[in-house]
């Protein structure tokens, strides 16, 4: 939503320093990333270590977050779960925007038939109920983490293409493009050397927002039993596997659920903040 021009003078100037909320969000993401990278180093137990005799127990001194049905340490599984929570969404957001940037640049700059063809495809994709398509296609294809990632890349590319295209359309009438064309610079060079750097900040902001959306979607598919393989430590999968121990060890559900929300909220806040800064 861009504010009308009349607002420009009234709008209060954005503070230049990092708002405290964004600082907290960055810190949370840093913690999640360290969990994913350090895994073995900080997890108190192996996330796969089963102790069937113990079963599901509430939090205790030995297991801060308790254990699940198979006696596995919940905290260790949540720490390891940061991996699938980061890798997939990074691939989805990065992959979708890599394709969308190419299509959006071509569509926005070349116009004509290329533009119509790409935009008809985008319109079609946006008319589909995306989350439902993801569930059905991933499920029928036999599930799996990378299948889910692939389907989400395809689904995310359409709206992302529209975003890149409209960013490119804003650049097109600017004098520097005319200047470049007058100098006889090739279309490819104008697209990738002159336009791309100017639309990159906005793309970056949307990549962050896409990450949050992809995290929520992937966790959802794993929650339905369609994402990661059984046994994999994954926040969504933990909600699926532990749904019957809500009474004996609620932490086994509330901790991964809280991590999904915290990570997604943080990324959404960072993305919104970047967008506000970069989109004028």
């Amino acid at each position: 939503m861009s504010a009308p021009a009349i607002n420009e003078t009234r709008k209060t100037k954005l503070p230049q320093r990092l708002p405290i909320v964004i600082l907290i969000a960055v810190l949370i993401i840093a913690v999640v990333v360290s969990c994913a990278v350090l895994g073995e180093g900080i997890a108190p137990y192996s996330p796969f270590l089963q102790r069937l005799g113990v079963g599901d127990t509430p939090p205790s001194a030995a297991h801060i977050a308790g254990t699940d049905l198979l006696g596995r340490d919940v905290l260790s599984r949540v720490i390891y779960g940061a991996r699938t929570a980061l890798v997939g969404p990074v691939v989805v957001a990065g992959g979708a925007f890599a394709i969308a940037t190419l299509l959006g640049l071509l569509s926005g700059y070349l116009g004509g038939l290329v533009d119509s063809a790409i935009m008809r495809w985008v319109d079609f994709m946006l008319a589909l109920p995306g989350p439902l398509v993801a569930i059905v296609v991933v499920g029928v294809a036999g599930g799996g983490y990378w299948t889910a990632v692939f389907v989400l890349v395809v689904l995310f590319t359409a709206p992302d293409t529209r975003i890149v295209r409209s960013a490119v359309l804003e650049q097109r009438p600017l004098p520097y493009i005319d200047a470049a064309r007058t100098l006889g610079i090739s279309k490819t060079r104008i697209l990738f050397v002159h336009i791309l750097p100017n639309v990159l900040p906005i793309i970056l902001a949307y990549v962050v927002l896409d990450f949050a959306f992809a995290l929520v979607n992937l966790a959802g598919l794993s929650f339905l039993g369609l994402g990661v393989e059984p046994g994999t430590p994954d926040w969504g999968r933990m909600l699926f596997e532990n749904r019957n121990i809500l009474f004996s060890n609620p932490v086994a559900l509330l901790l991964p659920a809280g991590m999904i929300i915290l990570t997604a909220v943080s990324m959404n806040l960072i993305g919104d903040w970047l967008l506000e800064r970069f989109a004028k």
């Binding site: 929520v216 979607n217 909600l239 999904i260 909220v265 959404n268």
Partner: peptide, 13 residues
């Protein structure tokens, strides 16, 4: 922001 970030199955739990 919280609503966008928390899918229904997580809020539901």
């Amino acid at each position: 922001v919280f609503g966008i970030s928390s899918p229904a199955f997580v809020t539901g739990i």
